[in-house]
Design a protein around this nucleic acid. Sequence first.
DNA 1: CATGAATGAGGGTTCATTCAT
DNA 2: AATGAATGAACCCTCATTCAT
Lengths: 195, 195, 195, 195
Amino acid sequence: MAPRTKEQFENIREEKKQLIFEAAFDLFALEGYHSTSITKIAKRANTSKGLLYNYFESKEALLLEILSSGLNEMMQLFDPNHDGILSEEEMLNFLSNLFEMLKTNNRYWRLYYAIFFQPTVFELINTQFADIFTKMMKLLTDYFAHHGLQEPEKEALVFGSLIDGIAFNYVMNPDLYPIEDIKDYIIHKFCYIKK
Amino acid sequence: MAPRTKEQFENIREEKKQLIFEAAFDLFALEGYHSTSITKIAKRANTSKGLLYNYFESKEALLLEILSSGLNEMMQLFDPNHDGILSEEEMLNFLSNLFEMLKTNNRYWRLYYAIFFQPTVFELINTQFADIFTKMMKLLTDYFAHHGLQEPEKEALVFGSLIDGIAFNYVMNPDLYPIEDIKDYIIHKFCYIKK
Amino acid sequence: MAPRTKEQFENIREEKKQLIFEAAFDLFALEGYHSTSITKIAKRANTSKGLLYNYFESKEALLLEILSSGLNEMMQLFDPNHDGILSEEEMLNFLSNLFEMLKTNNRYWRLYYAIFFQPTVFELINTQFADIFTKMMKLLTDYFAHHGLQEPEKEALVFGSLIDGIAFNYVMNPDLYPIEDIKDYIIHKFCYIKK
Amino acid sequence: MAPRTKEQFENIREEKKQLIFEAAFDLFALEGYHSTSITKIAKRANTSKGLLYNYFESKEALLLEILSSGLNEMMQLFDPNHDGILSEEEMLNFLSNLFEMLKTNNRYWRLYYAIFFQPTVFELINTQFADIFTKMMKLLTDYFAHHGLQEPEKEALVFGSLIDGIAFNYVMNPDLYPIEDIKDYIIHKFCYIKK
DNA sequence: CATGAATGAGGGTTCATTCAT
DNA sequence: AATGAATGAACCCTCATTCAT
């Protein structure tokens, strides 16, 4: 008889929203953003189309929330809040975390790549990523300079591209790509840590 | 006027088809596959929707033809039809051609990436790529083995990933990515050619 | 606390209902009936959608109640409960009240017009109005006849139309229409009162 | 076999567009803009929903085209392209045309009023009407000044309001309102023409 | 008395595809 | 070979109303 308390409502909301979020994430990753209809998402989340709009403003907002949540996860991982200098240990951590994320969040990264190349969507996300990218490049350039490499900017770019390429290949073929071997190779080559 | 010969008709046919092909290519690359309507394509090709269906079975068929043609171009470039051994000069050619293609066919590669990650389309194309990929890996592995590297398979994979990463970064940011510098770096590092 | 008496409950009920009524009125007038959602009304009334349906059977019922209440107000104003003869003083009162109402209830009249012309709604209200209209016409006809005009029915109709036209113009442009001037003009012309 | 000529297409378009236009007009006038769905319009025009969008950009565009076409008709009627002075004969013409239009385009005017009071739509149309309105007021003011009335602006406003009120009453009750009588009354009173 | 999560029918709109000409 | 009018299914989204609590 008594109306539900605010917390009760909050819980219901949180749970349902998560359900829809997960359903959308799965479908976007499995079948692509454009091929996934709101109807499909609602069906997979065992709910109604209408309710989806109680939680997300639009299909695009739902997508952005998914992407954004992945970004935030990543930023937490890579922002050690430090002095601006990348030590060998930090580089090691960085790479370990990266490879770990690729393995555990495989689904997200595949979706992310799929979205990234959608010409229309690209611009929406790009600015958010640009900052992270620039920051990382600065760190890497300093890192390579500190280790005496001749053209640290170029090295940083090549290193970044290599990481991208590895991520990209692994994500598209997680079963075939020997990610562990590659990880060891990269760590051994770029961490300059003596045993 | 004399009635047109069969070849003339054939030429007209081919030209019109090419026009549609180009229009679709441009639009897919510029605005994405899903955002490009048949009407837009026909308009840009200065023709009618009906005619388009004379040349292509469906919108998806048109897309696949575009992708496939790009693939074939690439295969021609990278299939030297040789003895299975990659010489230093061949490697140099390989890389030169690759970078050249990235620069001149930027448009295609961006579309290609956009499509590649569409989960549904991916499977369709993937098998065609798998062959090329395997062949190239074999060549590269031999190449690195021949130059005395300890783990040539791993080196080949890393090299492949690096190339992918560079292509990917350049294609998404052709104006900012210093492709020439990177090209020199790569050639200098992997071609083992002494001056 | 002592349990609330029945009247107290009744008062709460009435107050809440009034709040919803006002909120709906404002929104209908400001944004139109169809553009105003139940959610918006509930939000503006600081209550819930569910409660709204405790007081009003449906959105349409809410609308009709608003319109009806305005009608009643007007009827009270114009029904002097008299002998069927309109004296000059009564005519003066009539006009004063009318112009006063236009100025103070501007909001209502605009809504009323907006609704009035909705073909579907029109029929619903029209019968209620027909009575008032007929009664007023009778009064006016007698009035003009009594003052010696040749075709009193026609004069009554023209007078009624003029009043409608003024109301209509003022309501749609309250800031620009010089209602006071027009009021003086009308009173001077139709009240036949000598100073 | 040969494709249709441009004229053939043009004819088909013109006819079909007119059909849809009429269907929409009828329904908007009968049931109101918001209560008329695209589906209903298409059904009444014996066509498909999709086709409607071949001819009209949106439901709102369709509405505006209907309103606009009525406006244009009216402007042609009332714009004698003259010297800025309204003679008695011109005033007579003006009024005759007006009453004629009310009678023949009854449907349009009812729709027009219905739309006019939709709060959202009002602004869209208003600017287009404002010009005509201002122009007419100027003409009328001069007209009354020329005939020696003391406060010509006020007279013009009152005259305008009266016309509005008559139109409004007639349009809402075409069967009961004695438009012919009123017309004679108005002409006799405001045309200052001696027999 | 009070809440807002949940529904589902229907809204306007788009677009690949077909087909009469 | 060539046209674009016509279709209809599916799209995303809105919202009055219900109901468990």
